[in-house]
Write a protein that binds this DNA or RNA. Structure first.
Length: 582
RNA sequence: GCUCUUGUAGUUCAAUGGAUAGAACUGCGGACUUCUAAGCCGUUAAUGUUGGUUCGAUUCCAACCGAGAGCACCA
């Protein structure tokens, strides 16, 4: 079905045509048809008259009146109740019984029938899964679900750095740990992973300490050399003892990640590892260095580099002086692996925006090497999670762990429920889903391309415009629906209150909002809308009785059920679960 | 230094080339014999500065001031 806004737009364009507006002028005209912010002014509006008054050489108010008259004749009366000129705007009111489309899928031309790969989260084994990963996961999940909503076939990828210097630092840092390697059944996965995170922080600390003596000092050189040897060992698997610890640590980390994905509600189709993409990427780089292509060059210390300056980019190292491929070469291998595995039409990679410049370089190089793949890659970057002014860094240990945050939120949510008549199991599951909703929603309700300042205390609050607020509305509706079971419907035809009418009219907007969210890859539109809808429901709920004297007002119940369906669907698109009770 | 991003109530975030710049938190004040008070109702409060483009700029452009990120062998 055509979007209502598109329908109006097309009719406006035909108005231009019958008025013999030249094609040249038509090009210049950019009017909008959008939802009215203020619902009292109608369901939709257009600024057509303001934009076109010059072309018509008429006062915009006159244009608005003329347009309104034309639209009045053209538009379907079963959809539009009223079309009204108000100053220079034209407002549209939909008929009361204009039904919400039951099938909520939206077929967007940029998505329908396309195969789209989404890569997101990308945590590194043996390093902490911190709130930055939580952010990337939340955004990636929402964006990929928006892709599905738009009619795309979607696969989800996670890329994990199981080789590289960060791991060398962890493995090297082990020697300074005071507690032994936690190789025991009695130690939880969480604590094992924590141990590895501490080794990483300690390794970095020792490295920084050595650096304080100067980069030319013997001590620093020794440390660097040890880390480089470790890096080499991990890369070529030449040391049995290292292999043993490494394999075990990697396994623990991956297990821990799976636990988290389960809680967060993400299911990846494929996992990629740097240990696999590294040799592949290196081969491609070496082969090209030896060919005539001139993409790569030898830099200082025989490192293999790409001279980005020729293209307005940075110069980056692809294979370092020791012959180990860096992140950049691995990206090449990854791109090829992904495409060989599944011939996508588009590959979306979600990362923090600190990687923007590197992605420009790697995309350029991949496009030069493999144009059929590089041209399909799109980098979607999100802002950084900031801790009230401070940058988070896993190197220094200045981080908030993802699982710890979820646990703290769960405890806060549990506290609110402790006196409810629920089983222990129910309370646990509900507090988990509410906690995740709280975290995810606080990320998704805002423009993710900008930085998010994270205040733990405030985030733990479950009040106000939050995920739990929306879940709560769903719970209330479920509770009402349950109460109406077995009751008779009332014969009294109730007049629809203002709140009921507004709620009903807000329901329709969902479809329009989804379209906009798809168009701009912007989950926050859906998040903001759900708050609006839940808030209107709560106002309605406070002033209207659905059950009166043991009789059910059918029309109001119907409104509740429809609201619940939209809220549930919207939360699902954002990757947030609904709960039965809370 | 160069490049990019960014600046909206006390705080955290919305929105828009045009109709009265919206919420939430905080503060203050209410309602409830009633379907879950994680709720409802009321109230105070904001577009960094200076210019430019425009009929109209908080939005686009420029400069300045402030914040963040990136800039060769980490990812």
């Amino acid at each position: 079905m055509l979007q209502i806004a598109e329908l109006i737009k097309n009719t406006c364009i035909s108005f231009l045509k019958i008025n013999n507006i030249s094609d040249e002028d038509m090009e210049k005209i950019k009017f909008v048809v959008d939802i009215n912010k203020d619902i009292d002014r109608g369901d939709l509006y257009t600024n057509f008259a303001l934009v076109t008054s010059k072309v018509f050489n008429q006062n915009p108010i006159i244009v608005a009146i003329n347009l309104t008259e034309y639209l009045h004749q053209q538009l379907d009366k079963t959809i539009f109740k009223k079309v009204e000129a108000a100053d220079a705007y034209v407002n549209f009111y939909l008929t009361d019984d204009f039904k919400v489309d039951k099938n909520k899928n939206i077929y967007h031309k940029d998505f329908t029938g396309k195969k789209i790969a989404y890569e997101y989260t990308d945590p590194n084994p043996m390093k902490e899964f911190h709130i930055g990963h939580l952010m990337a996961n939340t955004i990636g999940e929402a964006v990929s679900r928006i892709g599905e909503l738009a009619g795309a076939e979607v696969k989800r990828y996670s890329y994990q750095g199981d080789t590289g210097r960060h791991l060398a630092v962890t493995m090297w840092g082990l020697r300074f740990m005071e507690t032994p390697w936690p190789d025991s059944e009695t130690i939880s996965i969480t604590d094992k992973v924590k141990f590895l995170g501490q080794a990483y922080v300690l390794g970095n600390k020792k490295l920084a300490e050595a650096k304080e003596n100067g980069e030319e000092s013997e001590e620093y050189k020794k440390v660097i050399s040890e880390i480089e040897i470790m890096n080499q060992k991990i890369y070529d698997r030449s040391d049995e003892e290292v292999n043993l610890l490494y394999d075990q640590g990697r396994e623990w980390s991956l297990q821990k990640f799976e636990e988290l994905y389960e809680i967060l509600g993400t299911k990846f189709d494929y996992y990629f590892f740097e240990s696999i993409t590294a040799p592949l990427g290196k081969d491609i780089v070496i082969n090209n260095l030896n060919s005539e292509s001139n993409i790569f060059a030898k830099g200082e210390n025989d490192a293999i580099i790409f001279k980005g300056e020729d293209y307005g980019l940075h110069t980056r190292v692809f294979v370092n002086a020791k012959g180990i491929p860096t992140y950049e070469a691995k990206e090449i291998g990854l791109a090829k692996m992904k495409y060989d595995l599944w011939n996508f039409d588009e590959s979306i990679i979600v990362t923090a925006n600190e990687q923007n410049d590197i992605f420009k370089v790697t995309k350029k190089v991949i496009t030069m090497l493999m144009p059929e793949i590089g041209s399909l890659m799109e980098h979607v970057s999100h802002g950084m999670m900031k801790l009230v002014g401070e940058k988070m860094s896993s190197r220094t240990g200045k981080i908030i762990a993802g699982d710890e945050l979820v646990e703290d939120m769960m405890a806060a949510s549990y506290e609110k429920m402790k006196d409810r008549d629920l089983t222990e199991d129910e309370k646990k599951n509900i507090s988990r889903d509410v906690a995740v909703a709280g975290i995810k929603f606080s990320i998704l309700k805002q423009n993710f391309r900008k930085d998010i300042v994270f205040d733990k205390e405030k985030s733990l609050s479950l009040e106000g415009d939050s995920g739990p607020y929306i879940q709560y509305a769903v719970v209330r509706i479920n509770s009402i629906v349950k109460k109406t079971e077995g009751l008779e419907f009332s014969n009294v035809k109730k007049e629809m209150s203002n709140e009921a009418q507004n709620l009903n009219r807000t329901l329709w907007r969902y479809n329009h909002i989804c379209y906009k969210a798809i168009d701009e890859m912007a989950p926050q539109y859906i998040a903001q809308y759900l708050i609006d809808l839940a808030s209107r429901f709560n106002s309605f709920y406070n002033k209207n009785k659905i059950i009166e004297d043991d009789k059910v007002h059918g029309e109001l119940l119907d409104l509740c059920v429809k609201t619940r369906d939209v809220l549930t669907h919207g939360l699902m698109v954002l990757g947030i679960r609904v709960v039965e009770k809370m």
